[in-house]
Simulated scan of single mutants.
Amino acid sequence: MTRIMLSEFIKIKRKLILFLVVLGPLGVVGLQAVNFGLRYDWLTSQYKEDLWGGLIGEVTMLSVPTILIGLTILTSMIANIEHQTNAWKQLLSLPVSKMKVFAGKALLSFVLLFMACLLLVVGTIILGISLKFGANIPILYLLKMCFFPFLAAMPFLALQTWLAISMKNQAIPLTTGILGTIVSMYATGFPDWMPLKWPWLVNEWEKPIYSVLLGIVTGLGINLLSLIDFSRRDVK
């Protein structure tokens, strides 16, 4: 797996994938910088009891759809490296199991999105300090609100990875991901069992960790089924 991961990182070295990883969190923080810059007095009066909490809440509102559309594009771009060059047969002729090849793609997507969330944490801290919100940064809360939606979105990462790898025509995976992102923006009123609601960390128990656990368990289940399907598939 170490060799597979190193190989995957070499493949994306000259692609726009790493740029996208930086662009996502940079875009979220940049939009919030504009938001607070234009409405500073009003927003700070709204969040005067907890300026950092208000900023983090505003960032989260943008980060959830960004994560969903970001994982859609990332998984498609990663899988398309082999699709464009018709390299699947060559890749699978190597002395590496199909499951490890698929797992490498899935793990690469996970690592890149994890890096994006980490950049979002750093960017939010820089923005808050720039806005003079003080040095009393709620680090634990910030980490939760940046990483919990990502972990709760694991079913979509697993599904999009499977769709992107299984289909040479990337229009279907991209359309599925875009539609899912649009629907998710109205998902807070959905029943708690709906996966599209989980990244928003809203549930009747008012426990965000429940949404995260549901996302992780479901995501692992979908990923396992995807591994089995890919190992049995005759890839062309």
Results as ranks from 00 to 15, higher is better:
Lys98Val: 01
Met185Asn: 06
Lys168Tyr: 10
Leu18Ala: 00
Ile182Asn: 11
Asn35Glu: 15
Gly53Thr: 00
Trp200Pro: 03
Ile69Val: 15
Lys105Thr: 07
Ile216Ala: 09
Ala106Ile: 03
Val21Met: 14
Tyr141Asp: 12
Leu38Cys: 08
His83Asn: 03
Ala187Trp: 06
Val111Met: 08
Ile56Leu: 05
Leu68Asp: 08
Ile81Ala: 00
Phe150Trp: 11
Thr181Asp: 11
Ala164Ile: 00
Thr161Cys: 13
Ile129Pro: 03
Phe102Ser: 01
Leu214Tyr: 14
Leu142Asn: 05
Ala171Lys: 01
Gly134Ser: 09
Leu6Asp: 11
Leu163Ile: 00
Cys146Val: 07
Leu159Ala: 10
Ile178Lys: 02
Gly128Phe: 12
Asp50Leu: 10
Val28Gly: 02
Ser231Val: 00
Met61Gly: 12
Pro173Trp: 00
Ser7Cys: 06
Asn86Ser: 15
Ser93Glu: 02
Ser166Gln: 12
Pro138Asn: 01
Leu127Ala: 05
Ala135Trp: 13
Ile10His: 15
Asn223Thr: 05
Thr2Val: 14
Glu204Phe: 13
Tyr40Val: 12
Trp198Met: 06
Tyr47Arg: 10
Gly37Cys: 04
Leu131Glu: 11
Ile137Met: 06
Leu163Thr: 01
Ile178Trp: 04
Tyr40Phe: 15
Leu118Glu: 06
Leu38Phe: 13
Leu20Ile: 15
Gly104His: 04
Gly57Gln: 10
Ile10Ser: 13
Thr85Tyr: 15
Thr75Pro: 03
Leu51Tyr: 07
Leu143Arg: 03
Thr66Lys: 08
Leu214His: 06
Met61Asp: 07
Ser97His: 02
Met115Trp: 09
Lys207Ala: 09
Ile81Gly: 00
Ile12Gly: 05
Val111His: 00
Leu113Phe: 10
Phe147Tyr: 11
Ile172Pro: 01
Ser7Asp: 02
Met154Asn: 05
Ile209Met: 06
Phe230Gln: 05
Ser109Lys: 05
Met194Thr: 13
Leu68Ala: 10
Pro149Cys: 02
Pro138Val: 00
Ile4Glu: 14
Leu224Met: 09
Phe150Asp: 02
Tyr141Pro: 02
Ser184Asn: 11
Thr161Asn: 14
Asn223Gly: 03
Phe147Asn: 00
Met77Phe: 08
